[in-house]
């Protein structure tokens, strides 16, 4: 992405290029941009305009301009309600779990993979571990129901460890759903998320390892003193990228898994917004207010992560 900036700077436009000449030379290029332009206006810019709804008592038949204007009332309603702060808390907690345990697992897996010496075994293990990434959210959630339901295989395992046999998905106690969500995401991402690290571990120079080995460094020492420092920039970069996206991804699985008995721990901002808008008695105004809060939070996080990324790795998105 650093290239966008570079490209902007490289462009040197002699002042004599007038609009007329530019249009003659690049008219077709502008025409090529037209589909993207229309697409963005329709599905990105018009919805931004639609945020007006968040400040209105929006009624579909009255439209944006004739609906009753209520100002910030929806936001007051949200923050004083019981459900919205709860959804915010759950979003943050699940996001943080994904950012910590969920982030570190692929890194560890990549280190372990890189220590397997037989190329074919390594390749086979990698291929297997990629599969869950391509399994759709609907299927992943069907699997979770199958395995954590009352008679599921994982429930059986947990019962053997001394937990009460139950449908774990209906359990609304505090860490249960959070842990299910975290481990589900790890299952999906552990192989696929490790690609970047495996690739960068492979570029660590063999000479360094050799020199260290001759000097008597053990394998563990080489791991912590050579490999880890070499790929640390990549790890930091990936982490900052994840920070920017942490509240955006993965809610569709929550939407498929949660049920009224687990709303207290499973409900997150997106699912709350979804319920307000698409269940019976739709409240579009309130729902878009919740959505706006979430958009603003997401944008802020992206900016922070981008700023941070530019500081540590010199690369940035915009």
């Amino acid at each position: 992405m650093a290239k966008i900036k570079a490209a902007t700077q490289e462009i040197y436009m002699p002042p004599k290029v007038t609009w007329k000449k530019d249009l003659k030379k690049n008219g077709t290029a502008y025409l090529f941009f037209a589909p993207m332009f229309i697409y963005q206006v329709l599905f990105a810019y018009l919805p931004m305009f639609g945020i007006l709804m968040a400040f209105e008592n929006f009624k579909v038949n009255k439209g944006y301009f004739k609906s009753e204007w209520v100002g910030l009332q929806h936001f007051v309603t949200l923050f004083t309600s019981e459900e919205f702060p709860r959804a915010l808390r759950n979003t943050v907690v699940m996001g943080l779990l994904n950012l910590t345990i969920g982030f570190i697992m692929p890194v560890i897996f990549a280190f372990l993979l890189s220590m397997i010496k037989k190329k074919k075994t390594k390749r086979l293990i990698q291929t297997c571990s990629y599969i869950p990434n391509f399994v759709s959210a609907v299927v992943v959630c069907s699997l979770i129901r199958e395995f954590l339901g009352h008679d599921g295989a994982l429930t059986g395992l947990l019962s053997a460890l001394g937990f009460e046999q139950q449908n774990w998905l209906a359990n609304g106690d505090i860490p249960v759903f959070w842990l299910i969500n975290t481990f589900m995401n790890i299952w999906c991402a552990i192989g696929w998320g490790s690609i970047m690290y495996v690739a960068s571990i492979a570029t660590v120079s063999g000479d360094l390892h050799e020199a260290a080995a001759i000097d008597g460094a053990t394998r563990f020492q080489r791991l912590t003193k050579i490999t880890l420092p070499c790929i640390l920039p990549i790890i930091v970069m990936m982490f900052t990228l994840q920070v920017g996206l942490v509240f955006v991804t993965g809610f569709d699985k929550v939407l498929l898994l949660y049920m009224p008995s687990t709303y207290s721990t499973a409900d997150c901002l997106q699912t709350y917004t979804y319920r307000l808008a698409f269940s019976s008695g739709a409240n579009y105004g309130l729902s878009s207010a919740a959505g706006l809060f979430q958009s603003v939070m997401g944008t802020a996080l992206l900016m922070i992560s981008n700023y941070w990324n530019r500081k540590v790795s010199g690369m940035s998105l915009f």
């Binding site: 919805p47 709804m53 917004t273 729902s287 900016m303």
Partner: peptide
């Protein structure tokens, strides 16, 4: 000549979106 405008035009939507409900309405 429009390069900067076009890049900006796309970057904005990368950063900020209207959200689920306004998109649905459109």
């Amino acid at each position: 000549k429009m390069h900067t405008f076009m890049v900006l035009f796309c970057t904005v939507t990368l950063l900020f979106g209207g959200g689920m409900v306004p998109t649905y309405m459109v």
